[in-house]
């Protein structure tokens, strides 16, 4: 492990609140240890701004171990930055070069209004889940966990889909602002598992309708979502959702 320091120029989207127009501000950061995570680099910037009496950059973050899905920004045009299958909090500064300019923009989509700086409102994703991303069982009285055997391969496929952290990078990077990968992953998970079968038709119809109503765009199979997904969720889940939806709508 070699620790070095780099100097960076940051161009960050600053927007006071949801109504403000916003613009890019340029900041110079010196002596950034390459062992830092991207968010720690932003922490350093914010400490610097605070000491200078300026408003720190607001950004969402929580677990900082790549699982909560709270963090996310577009770095030099790529959601969560240049490392594949890595969230912003797990991206380390050793992947950047001395003197590099980093353009940091919030996740953008019509369905994700900006609250402030890099903080966006992703509640539309919750509403998609509320439309049917569940198995309608109440607590209690469930059959034994082993009552329904599930082939291990099927369980693994369902787990692949269920790994979604709901960060919204798929939408932010989709040229169409579509939420198909997010929605497809949940529909896939529950259509693969027998527990999800009783409601699969209603689920597909309802979740797709909500996705459309929330103002997400239409998928044109651009594959950007899959390329930036920090959990490597495959667009085969979108294909599966397409099948589920067609079956639910036409058959």
């Amino acid at each position: 492990m070699t620790t070095t320091s780099i100097n960076l120029k940051l161009e960050i989207w600053r927007q006071k609140d949801s109504k403000a127009t916003g613009n890019f501000e340029t900041y110079i950061l010196t002596n950034i240890s390459t062992d830092m995570s991207f968010l720690e680099m932003l922490d350093v910037l914010n400490e610097q701004l605070t000491r200078e009496g300026q408003d720190p950059v607001a950004f969402d973050h929580d677990c900082r171990e790549g699982i909560c899905g709270m963090c996310g920004a577009v770095v030099n045009g790529i959601a969560h930055g240049p490392e594949p299958e890595t969230t912003l909090c797990q991206l380390h500064m050793r992947h950047f070069k001395e003197g590099e300019t980093l353009v940091i923009e919030p996740f953008r989509s019509r369905a994700f209004p900006i609250h402030k700086d890099l903080v966006t409102d992703r509640s539309a994703l919750d509403r998609i889940i509320q439309a049917g991303g569940y198995v309608s069982v109440n607590t209690g009285g469930m059959p034994d966990g082993n009552a329904t055997p599930i082939p291990s391969a099927t369980a693994e496929l369902a787990m692949d889909a269920a790994a979604c952290i709901g960060c919204g990078a798929c939408i932010a990077s989709c040229p169409n602002g579509a939420a198909m990968l997010f929605t497809g992953a949940k529909i896939s998970q529950l259509s693969l598992l027998p527990q999800g079968h009783p409601e699969r038709k209603e689920r597909a119809r309802s979740m797709v309708a909500t996705m459309d109503k929330e103002g997400f765009g239409n998928c044109t199979n651009e594959r950007e979502c899959e390329a930036v997904c920090p959990k490597g969720i495959s667009i085969s889940n979108i294909a599966r959702m397409n099948r589920e939806f067609v079956k639910a709508s036409l058959l």
């Binding site: 577009v74 019509r110 579509a178 899959e226």
Partner: peptide, 21 residues
Amino acid sequence: LQNRKARGHDYKVKKRSSPNS
């Protein structure tokens, strides 16, 4: 047209990561 509207504000740096973009 619909998708451009859904996209909203465009990014300053536009970069594609997918194959055959």
